[in-house]
């Protein structure tokens, strides 16, 4: 290999720079930060378990979206056989009406910007 010294040095520098966020977080212990979404619920129980909602709410919402818009299904039967109306604003945001303290906390942390709210309204009670 030509210029093996330079190549190896270059690769090493690149790896250091590329892994910068990882070791910077470890050193400064910034990685320990956990977002803490505030839940103000009138009902104590979400439609599924907290753990499930945390991990799969996006898949669930996509399912709801297709069911409501495309499959003409308006009722969701949860795993405990309770039924809920499939409606983002009317069902989800009724409890989670505090978008900034609830949704945005984690979304901002993980750097995602779902475009749900381009169309779906946040109830006027809380913004």
């Amino acid at each position: 290999m030509y210029d093996s010294g330079k190549v190896i040095l270059g690769v090493a520098v690149f790896l250091c720079l590329a892994s910068f966020p990882a070791w910077y977080n470890v050193i400064t212990s910034k990685a320990d930060y956990r977002p803490d979404p505030v839940i103000v619920v009138s009902d104590n129980q979400c439609i599924e378990s907290t753990q499930y909602m945390r991990e799969y709410h996006m898949q669930l919402l996509k399912e709801w979206r297709d069911d409501a818009v495309r499959n003409g299904k308006t009722i969701y039967t949860a795993s405990d056989n309770k039924t809920y109306e499939i409606n983002l604003t009317g069902t989800c945001l009724k409890c989670h009406s505090n978008k900034t303290e609830f949704c945005d906390t984690c979304h901002d942390f993980s750097g995602v910007s779902p475009n749900c709210w381009d169309c779906h309204n946040i109830p006027k009670s809380g913004k």
Partner: peptide
């Protein structure tokens, strides 16, 4: 006046 119960479009 946005009616909350129905989405707007984007």
């Amino acid at each position: 006046e946005v009616d909350d119960s129905y989405p707007t479009r984007t």
